[in-house]
Amino acid sequence: MSDVATEGSLRPIARPRHTVYLLLAVFAFAAVGAVRAGQVAQAPPHSRVPQYLVLLLAEWGLFYYAAMGPRRAGVPLSEIFDVRGWSFRPAGSSDPSEAPAKVRVGPARLLGTLLLAGAFWIAAGLILAGVKRATDLLGGATAAEAQRTSRLLIPHGGIEAVLWVPLSISAGICEEFVFRGYLQRQLAALTKSPVAGLLLSALVFGVAHGYQGVSSVVVITVFGVLFGILAHLSRSLVPGIIAHAWQDLASGLFRM
Rank of each mutant, 00 (worst) to 15 (best):
E98D: 07
G139E: 03
F177L: 03
V165H: 09
S251F: 09
V32H: 03
V131L: 09
L230Q: 13
R48S: 05
E98W: 00
G206K: 10
T149Y: 13
S150F: 05
S94C: 00
S93Y: 03
A58I: 07
L111E: 01
A101R: 14
K132A: 14
A123S: 11
G224E: 07
Y21D: 04
T19S: 07
L167Y: 10
Q147V: 09
G92H: 06
V165P: 08
G172S: 05
L55M: 11
V214T: 12
G112R: 05
L153R: 08
Q42L: 13
A30R: 12
A28W: 11
S93R: 12
A196N: 03
G85E: 12
A146N: 15
E79S: 13
A144F: 01
L200N: 04
Q39A: 13
V204G: 04
I169A: 14
Y182L: 07
E176Q: 09
F227R: 00
V195Q: 05
A91D: 14
K192R: 15
A108F: 02
V217Y: 00
L153V: 14
S9F: 00
L249K: 09
R11V: 06
V26R: 11
S78N: 05
G69Y: 03
F29V: 07
L167C: 05
Y65F: 15
W246F: 15
L198F: 02
R255M: 13
V105G: 02
S47T: 15
I173H: 01
G85R: 11
S236M: 12
I220Q: 09
S87G: 02
P76F: 07
V238C: 04
G106L: 09
R104D: 05
A161K: 12
A144W: 00
S193L: 07
P12C: 06
A124R: 09
D248M: 05
E176A: 01
P166G: 12
G33E: 10
V54E: 11
A28H: 08
V4L: 11
L116S: 06
I127S: 04
V49T: 11
I122R: 01
